[in-house]
Design a protein around this nucleic acid. Sequence first.
RNA 1: GCCCGGAUGGUGAAAUCGGCAGACACAGCGGACUUAAAAUCCGCAGACCUUUACCGGUCGUGGGGGUUCAAGUCCCCCUCCGGGCACCA
Length: 847
Amino acid sequence: MNGNAAGEGSQGQRYNPAEIEPRWQAVWDADASLYAAEGHETGKPKYYCLEMLPYPSGQLHMGHVRNYSIGDALARYMWMRGYNVLHPMGWDAFGLPAENAALKNQTPPKEWTLKNIAAMKTQMRRMGLSYDWANEVTTCLPEYYRWNQWFFLKMFEKGLAFRKKSKVNWCPECATVLANEQVIGGCCWRHEDTIVEQRDLTQWFFRITQYGDELLAGLDKLEGWPEKVRTMQRNWIGRSEGTLVDFAVEAAVGDAAKITVFTTRVDTIFGATSVQLAPEHPVSKAFALEDDALRVQIEGLLAEQQKAKETDALGAIEKHGVNTGRFAVNPFNGERVPIWVANYILADYGTGAIMSVPAHDERDFEFAQKYGLEVRRVIVPASGTNAEGSELPYTAEEEAVLTGSGEWNGLGCVAAQAKMAAFAKEKGFGTATVTYRLKDWGVSRQRYWGTPIPMVYCDNCSPDEPLPVPESELPILLPENVDITQTNGSPLGRVAEFVNVTCPKCGGKARRETDTMDTFVDSSWYFYRYTDAKNSDAPFDSDKANYWFPIDQYIGGVEHAILHLIYSRFWTKVMRDLGLIKNDEPAERLFTQGMVIKDGSKMSKSKGNVVSPDDMIARYGADATRMYALFAAPPDRDLEWLEEGVGGISKFLSRVHRLVMKFGAAGTAVAETQDKAESAAGQALLRKLHQTIAKITQDFDGRWHFNTSISSIMILVNEIAAHEAAMDAGEVSDGAIREVFRGLTLLLAPFAPFLAAELWQVMGGEGVVFRTAWPEANAELARENEIEIPVQVNGKLANVVKVPAESDEAAVKAAALADEKVATRLEGKNIVKVIVVPGKLVNFVVR
RNA sequence: GCCCGGAUGGUGAAAUCGGCAGACACAGCGGACUUAAAAUCCGCAGACCUUUACCGGUCGUGGGGGUUCAAGUCCCCCUCCGGGCACCA
């Protein structure tokens, strides 16, 4: 290039990320120690910075870019603050897409997955992310999934892994079972238009409900987690205190001698005017066997309920019921009440049976109105409470007392609940109890690409009980070259060498379990493996895990608020009880970043609004792409991707580059300049630098509003540019120039690592910029000499006056009164009151 | 229905503890440089009224009320948008 002879800006020195970034990437890739975590023997405090591991689809998307830009900035900052940082990455590599891709491209899942991992790793390196690749974890490799199997055996030993026949969500498209959490709106989470069916299958489960109380109680202590996530988990666990009460069935048939109802309002039991059963309740079934006409009606109700469940319209289902013609006896008052079967009673919550109290429950009221059942009031507002809230149904329990309830009359509702539950227990027809919405975790999947479950079935020696594979036989390798083109049944069931096995107990012929594990198993403990990823004797070394855990900061999308994060908490508690670790919770702090939006909606292939990170990097560089992801919005909010914005950041980085090339080459070795004779320009530069250091340090340590951190760096650069002429003229000392450019580069390092490394080298900085101590804000240098004070008259701005920074109240007031404009406003008025907030404002209240 | 978020210029946003609303950017407009364009640099920029211009004024943070010398910020009521949960007894 030619023609641009003027001064410093020759073409060859222009900011060119396409040249700078690959050069530095090569340097970093060649140095495995750069981002390596140190051992516990280091004297430094530890910091475990973790971003959620991606599914290796083959392509990073902008959500990843955002997630990892946040984590990377934090990790680099913590390093510069002198911490021993663990910043690992891995691959959630099992799961259905690999099988789908295999069908489509005739590529085996393993090959497809490993190829994708390689591609995404390249993208991550291009992004300049500071991962410790020595601790990389890939969940689909036997080195990892053998420990899934090991944990399964431990859980089986402790009775935490068990089999039961259960109604399962079946996606016809996936031809597999889905967890409740994978059913969204009655449809499959992967096939949004495919309605999930109910099927009966024998499945493996993890007894997460055993930890229900602890999972719930632990949420209160997770103060570093978003309240939103904690609330979602609380709702998911759905703990509910109530009472079980037995109603005897009149003229009992077979097993159907009593009906146990679950209620949270046992205080209303004198108002119970019917018992309502779920269609699938054993007593419903027993009645149906005796009466064909009734059976048909009950089946009808069941069909309605299932259909509603499938379309997720359960909340809106029209209530239907059928009177069985039979009666149950209320043990509290000996009264006969009719037994109904209804479509809105769920078999899998509580006991599948309720007592219906129309006067004090919305749903019961609606049902009773429809079928003309008796509505009997047994609760009234406590005296002194106004009666308007007492219209039926009256559901209050505070400030409300019992009536028409025999010996319990006059008791407050809450007190009555405890006393009546105790009474039921004493008399042997009930007890206080706790019910959960949380269900045990179904982990069986009838798929190929997952961890084989390490159990065998032997008809000879153990026809009823599955047998665990001995630990010494692990891993049970997932066979390769399996035909996964057939869609029905487990693919592994068709591999004879896999299925046929010698019984570990009797040595005879036995069959292997052919289901694989839910991939949420993989992601429930991967972050422990990061602490010791190469260990072949154990999932990890306890000392190492205990050094690093809990995770100091976990960063990811809010879509994992329930599933992944509750399973991870469960797994941590199980591992603690196995004696492997000491912590009760996996992560001290959790951060959920917002979505990346384009043209008003979430980026997705179907909407065709996907922006490729590779394109952005090719056009503007990785630094600009990452920095934009942090600049465009605070990290917890949704971010609108605007390509022009990335261009703006790129322009800003060019400015920085130009200025450092021009002035920074003087070097960074000397950092102190408290030269008393520093020029006004020099003082202004140092003042802005130290203000910026304070601001960014505060952002990192506090609320993570990196958008304002970056804007403050821009302000600093604007200040530098404004003093360019003064620097040209030699009015600013070399020391001040050095300090300013050195500080600027260090502040930039967490956000734009490539450029920071480049500039550091240009300036002759010692060592690696990312291991250089984070600059410290000098309050003395940051202090303003003069500040502007707004002066208001009756709360309206009159003028702004300049005063020395340390002015006291009287001086500020005097300066305000001395101002001409202010004086004009005050003319002829009576000053009633003067408010002076030192350093902030003056307000004259006049009449 | 319940529980969380959110609503500020043309756009993304800032205002962290009740103290100058719109920092910093994007887009736009004007200018410098250039044969020209790109790039770069400088400047303008909430709306409205007034004014040749300067100056000046009024309104303004989804809507309505309130507290206060002072409200985007606190309190009460309402609207809309996003997310989660939902006959869970």
